[in-house]
Amino acid sequence: MDVKEFFTIEMSYSTYHLVFPRIIMFILIVMGSFLLIRTLVKKSKDRENSAPFKFFTNHYDRVKFYGTIILLTTYAAVLQHIGFVLTSIIFMILLTLLFIGNLRKKSILVSITNGLTTTIVVWYVFGQLFDITLP
C-alpha cells in the first residue's frame, strides 16, 4: 500500500462529524483498557497490602450529604414552576440550616437573613437592573 494512501482519511460531507470522535474514542478505549488491566494486575499482586476500595470517607456525614443532593435536585426541579424568588429563598434557608446542623434561634435567624438578602439582591441586580433572564 502506498504510504500516502495510508495517511489519508476518507472525507465525506455527511460524515464530517464522525471523523474526530472515532479517533478520540479509539484512543479512549485503548488507554482505558490498559489502565483497567494495570489496576487489576496491581490489585491481585498485593492483595494483602491494599485496603479495599472505599467510596466514602470514614464516618461521612450522611444527613448533610444526601440532604444536599436532595435539596439541589428539588430546587432545580421546581425552580421553573414556582418561580425564582420564592424557590430560592426557601432553598437557601433550608440549605443553610442543613449545613449549620441545628435549629437554634440564632441559626434560624442566620438562615433567613442569608436566604432573603441573597435572593433579593440577585433578583434585583441581575433580574431587574441587568435584565438577565432568570428562571
Binding site: T117, I120, V121, Y124, V125, L129
Partner: peptide
C-alpha cells in the same frame, strides 16, 4: 450587603 440594599432603594 448594606451598600447593595441601599443602592437598591435608590434605584428602586
Amino acid at each position: 450587603q448594606e451598600a447593595d440594599q441601599e443602592a437598591e432603594e435608590v434605584s428602586g
